[in-house]
């Protein structure tokens, strides 16, 4: 059973990552910065629970805020570039964050043991769950409360005028400006909400793995984040969830029995899925 709980935890964290890229993608921006916001949230929550002795819930609130603040700051300069240039710029930001944590030391003695991030060795002993006696199932349920909350938030956005405005910007920036939409405000707000969701995801990730390091936030994580909403389609948030289940549940775990052949098949199946459903599992279109 623990295996399935762990898998559900992984799917939950990756869904948050995917959702953080989903809202940004609605405005037509392909961002590879989501792993960076994820890292900021992970280190923030970890340091608050381990070094400052906070409870995890307020620490996750701080993760959301720090992720949002960094995303908002990245959003403004990122607006000046589009398309491939934006991909490169956000990629550079993500790598910058990773390298920052590669060099980041902040250790404090807690009960006689030195704890905290230690450069390339990473940040060990993020033991909020074991110290408080939470089992794998409880941790999984706790995490899914946040996943469902994030999905509900974005579902609500999609039904509101804000959601239509995001999609309008994603379709045609020139026309959106011409009907009075403030592109800067809309794109930065989407980036900020995405940063908050990625931050919470990172905070949860740090606590269920108990150990994070710079390589947990590499380009592969950023690629996964943007791949989920693309693979799942932008019709609604469930596309992203389906894509995460497909990739993490089926491709990564389900094909484990195939050994070395798995990696080969992994790529081939994604290509196949994209060819069969070019606008994602749930399509790009909303209900007509």
């Amino acid at each position: 059973m623990d295996f399935y709980f762990s898998l559900a935890q992984l799917i939950g964290v990756h869904t948050l990552l995917g959702l953080s890229a989903y809202i940004v993608l609605l405005t037509g921006q392909v961002s590879l910065a989501q792993a960076g916001f994820f890292a900021v949230g992970a280190y923030t929550a970890g340091m608050l629970t381990v070094l400052a002795g906070w409870h995890l819930v307020p620490a996750l609130g701080a993760s959301a805020l720090s992720g949002a603040a960094v995303a908002c700051a990245v959003g403004f300069p990122a607006l000046r570039v589009k398309g491939l240039m934006l991909v490169i710029a956000t990629l550079a930001f993500g790598e910058g964050v990773r390298l920052f944590f590669f060099n980041f030391d902040y250790q404090v003695a807690v009960d006689g043991i030195r704890l905290g991030p230690l450069g390339g060795e990473g940040f060990r002993q993020i033991r909020f769950f074991p110290e408080n006696g939470w089992g794998t199932g409880e941790v999984m349920l706790f995490m899914w409360v946040f996943v469902i909350a994030a999905m509900a938030l974005l579902w609500w956005f999609d039904r509101s005028r804000y959601g239509s405005v995001l999609r309008a910007v994603g379709e045609d920036e020139l026309a959106a400006q011409s009907v009075g939409i403030n592109l800067t405000a809309v794109k930065v707000s989407a980036m900020t909400v995405g940063g908050a969701i990625a931050g919470v995801g990172g905070g949860l990730y740090a606590h269920y793995t108990t150990h994070i390091e710079h390589s947990s936030f590499n380009i592969l994580v950023a690629t996964f984040a943007i791949a989920y909403p693309i693979l799942g389609g932008l019709r609604n948030v469930f596309g992203t969830l389906l894509a995460v289940i497909f990739v993490q549940g089926f491709l990564v775990e389900g094909l484990r029995f195939m050994g070395d052949w798995r990696n080969l098949l992994f790529g081939a199946l994604i290509v196949l899925a994209m060819n069969l459903r070019p606008s994602g599992f749930l399509g790009g279109r909303r209900r007509a």
Partner: peptide, 19 residues
């Protein structure tokens, strides 16, 4: 013509209410 093709007719007018 530059409409928001993937939005409904109704939504095209909704997003434009910016006076």
């Amino acid at each position: 013509i530059r409409l928001f093709g993937q939005l409904s007719v109704w939504q095209n007018l909704w997003v434009a209410q910016n006076s």
